[in-house]
Nucleic acid binder design. Structure first.
Lengths: 197, 197
DNA sequence: ATCTTTATTAACCAAAAGGTTAAACCAAAC
DNA sequence: GTTTGGTTTAACCTTTTGGTTAATAAAGAT
């Protein structure tokens, strides 16, 4: 592992745990097991290091969504596949959702600039498809954007609010993980069940 | 408005926008229109000022939940009332969910200590009730905790991830607010529809 | 009026944090 | 072996930040 990779991984860990404002360059250096000056040798400054980490995190999440949303499947198939794949991915990266949401709120300008080009999550095609299937009579007349919001809410929220969820529902780490495993299939069933005609 | 109230309100605004680590005492003082030394005259230090703000925020959210969850209504009525009332409240305090979730993740020790006494959200009664209604045959056989998680996810997530949601679904402030108004009734319909026998 | 207590401020302080520098290290090239 | 280039570090610098202090203003009490 190159020094740059060591720094990047350390930065990812610290930024995801503490957020941009709470993270300390010294802590990142310690985590990486190198001198603080090396951070600035490899990355210009804290902001740029953070942007590298954030961009990576975001670019891991976003394209997945598009691939599924813009495939040739039916809406029901897409919902089933998305919830399953997304939860599988986030179980392996449980800090990502909270990290992205938090920094989006604390740093909207920077994040919006990312959202404006690249392979950002783009639901327009899926929305059109939902409208079509509503006309065809496959799906009940609902608002597509509300449906999308439901899907995202049910998949992402439990991870974003992980600590609170564990606290209120009295879940151990393993119980939580097991609930999330169940959700891989439950969510799609539940949603499809409530919108199919 | 007393000076202490001015400080508290200013602190609430700044903490909710920037989080604990990102907030600056000077910024809070400016927001309150007073000298920085007054902060320390009224509140011992940043941590205590933050805890006051956080506690207030949390104590606004939590008891509401209990009142509804432990009332004498049916599960369907509780779901309907909770989603409606909760969204109404959060529309007026749109920064609260993200604020609480963020600080829970960044400061778990402190927050868990709050979750351990007081009138914390306690779903045990509601869970028992759900199990009973499943036996009675009113509700399909589902896992109560998954149901609770669905309800929270659908109500809270859109506010916690507000910026991202607006960005991805291309919503203006008013469009977002209108969607949330709709959700006051949509969510309960959707959930009840998918779990009633 | 004067004294005492409570608010409020400007100026200051020490520690923390991000960032820089100049020197040391260490490989490969000659 | 010495030079040359990129790495790495210890020590240092500057700015920011939370927090303090000592002096001032305002408000009650006597």
């Amino acid at each position: 592992m190159t020094t740059e990779e060591k720094i990047f991984n350390a930065a990812r860990i610290v930024f995801q745990k503490k957020g941009f404002a709470g993270a300390r360059m010294q802590e990142i250096a310690d985590e990486a097991g190198i001198n603080k000056a090396m951070l600035h040798y490899c990355f210009k400054n804290k902001q740029q290091l953070f942007e590298a980490v954030f961009m990576k995190a975001f670019s891991q999440l976003a394209p997945q969504i598009n691939t599924i949303f813009n495939s040739e499947k039916t809406v029901f198939e897409k919902i089933t596949q998305f919830t399953h794949d997304y939860i599988s991915f986030v179980i392996e990266n449980p800090f990502l959702p909270q990290f992205i949401i938090q920094e989006m709120n604390n740093n909207p300008e920077f994040v919006m600039s990312i959202l404006n080009h690249e392979n950002r999550p783009n639901p327009t095609l899926l929305i059109a498809q939902i409208e079509k299937e509503i006309e065809t009579g496959i799906i009940k007349p609902i608002k597509p954007k509300q449906l999308l919001l439901d899907i995202f809410s049910m998949t992402v929220f439990p991870f974003a609010a992980q600590i609170m969820v564990k606290g209120i529902l009295h879940l151990s780490d393993t119980e939580f993980k097991q609930m999330m495993e169940e959700r891989k299939t439950i969510i799609a069933q539940q949603i499809i069940n409530s919108i199919k005609k």
